[in-house]
Design a protein around this nucleic acid. Structure first.
Lengths: 111, 111
DNA sequence: ATCGTTTATCGGCGATTTACGATGGACGGA
DNA sequence: TCCGTCCATCGTAAATCGCCGATAAACGAT
């Protein structure tokens, strides 16, 4: 887990760090098809705003698609999502503290 | 995966969506102890900036600790990290497209 | 040819983020 | 006591974000 790797991971996490964008992903996975209209309908946001969120997900490489013939058509990039999931697993594995002597519990707060 | 859940997950992901903060977590897991000084030394940032990143992680509940006696002492919140990992697993599971008829490949780009 | 629909992009606004230096408090050592 | 170190906080500047309405492009239908 060195510098560039963390940077790249942070970028993808940033794309996920907004409820609207998470909802877009879940909606796309819902099989309701790929229409953008359906996505807009499911969010309390203006169409232009949703379009921008989609753009963020596209640029992060988490979804694929575009506008084919007047109609938009987006879908999850399963491969990218799998890669992200794997990278997160690596991160969380790296985050397993190696038996800390419990020397770090200032107050543990109102237990 | 409904609204509030996505919102709460997005908040935690936001805390992770910066390379410096990821590095802080990895450093804390490195067992180098909990010193803030060690963290600052490992980052190309000013001490005040690092302190703010630590604050973000604290507020997200991903790390615990504080300043005990002049010296700072932080450590990963293993429980919170485990919860986050589980929530991410739920998300990624929800993101498994249910056999999309491959009807969504506008151009697949320059293959 | 003209409309209505769908979607992306532009311009702008307020809020938030990221970064820094400076300041101040708490502590240990000389 | 007087420094030096360590850390959090404040104030601030620059950049980015999140949102919107308006607009424009592409298309189908009339």
């Amino acid at each position: 887990m060195d510098g560039p790797l963390l940077h790249q991971l942070a970028d993808r996490l940033k794309a996920l760090s907004h409820p609207a964008r998470l909802k877009v992903l879940v909606t796309l996975a819902g099989g309701d098809g790929c229409q953008c209209g359906a996505i807009v309908a499911g969010l309390p946001l203006a169409q232009s705003t949703v379009s921008q969120h989609i753009k963020v997900l596209l640029e992060a490489g988490l979804i694929r698609g575009g506008t084919e013939k007047g109609r938009a058509c987006y879908c999850l990039d399963a491969e990218a999502l799998a890669t992200l999931r794997r990278d997160l697993d690596i991160l969380f594995s790296a985050l397993h503290a190696p038996a800390p002597d419990a020397a770090c519990e200032p107050e543990k707060a109102h237990v």
